[in-house]
């Protein structure tokens, strides 16, 4: 029993170290977006949860794009930051009623991988994508999937480490995405409820050649 405990502790210790190294390692091909402003004027307390204007992002150009209602059902965007504090991310997919791209040609899908960003090197098969139950990347209620925990003690969104999202984009390319923070400056720990937000911090890699290779190191 004691040996087992030691082994488990060692195992935890090693996996920790390994994960931390891989997560933090920068690379030269990923795109890092820092402090992209969400709807910083909206507030849950006054306007409510539906009052945050959606921010759209195109992975190919690496830029936020303005999308009118008429443009929603097009492939001009890949990610939509929706909901409270722009923290719920939809991938452009035309086949789901609550996706902003509903009714359009978007082929998007997302899968959650319990691995650090740099350890995700290949996109899963389309069969795997079609089995996904993740309709968007948002609040993790327990075991459903998502990129942050929400603490009711201090009303702060806490990003989940070592979790990566593999994406099939609106046009069918493959990408990987790590959502880092909605707080300005991407601070390692936030304790102040009034820390400026939402400012979207994330990094991603999109495979331009259409293959499934997502190796970035």
């Amino acid at each position: 029993m004691r040996i087992l405990t030691v082994a488990v502790l060692l195992g935890l210790c090693c996996s920790c170290t390994k994960n931390n190294n891989a997560t933090d390692a920068p690379d030269v091909v990923s795109v890092v977006i820092k402090d992209l402003p969400g709807d910083t004027a909206a507030r849950m307390g006054t306007g409510g949860s539906m009052s945050f204007k959606t921010v759209y992002f195109n992975l190919d150009s690496g830029k936020a794009v303005t999308i009118t209602d008429a443009d929603k059902a097009t492939t001009k965007w890949d990610l939509a930051f929706t909901g409270p504090y722009n923290s719920e991310v939809y991938v452009n997919y035309g086949g789901y009623q609550y996706n902003p791209g509903y009714g359009g040609p978007g082929k998007g899908a997302v899968l959650q991988i319990e691995k650090p960003y740099q350890e995700v090197t290949t996109a899963p098969s389309d069969a795997d994508f079609s089995k996904t139950t993740l309709t968007k990347i948002g609040w993790e209620s327990g075991s459903n999937g998502g990129w942050f925990f929400y603490s009711m003690d201090n009303h702060i969104a806490v990003p989940i480490k070592n979790r990566t999202f593999v994406i099939r984009t609106a046009t069918g390319k493959y990408a990987k995405l790590e959502l880092l923070n909605v707080y300005k400056g991407n601070p390692p720990v936030v304790t102040d409820l009034y820390w400026p937000s939402p400012y979207l911090n994330f990094r991603y890699f999109i495979q331009a050649d259409g293959s499934r290779s997502l190796r970035t190191q």
């Binding site: 609040w139 327990g142 075991s143």
Partner: peptide
């Protein structure tokens, strides 16, 4: 699906977790 705590809030409302 074999986890726990999987089926709850719907995407038609706030804090939706899929269907």
């Amino acid at each position: 699906r074999t986890g726990s705590g999987l089926i709850g809030t719907d995407d038609s409302g706030a804090f939706g977790q899929g269907l």
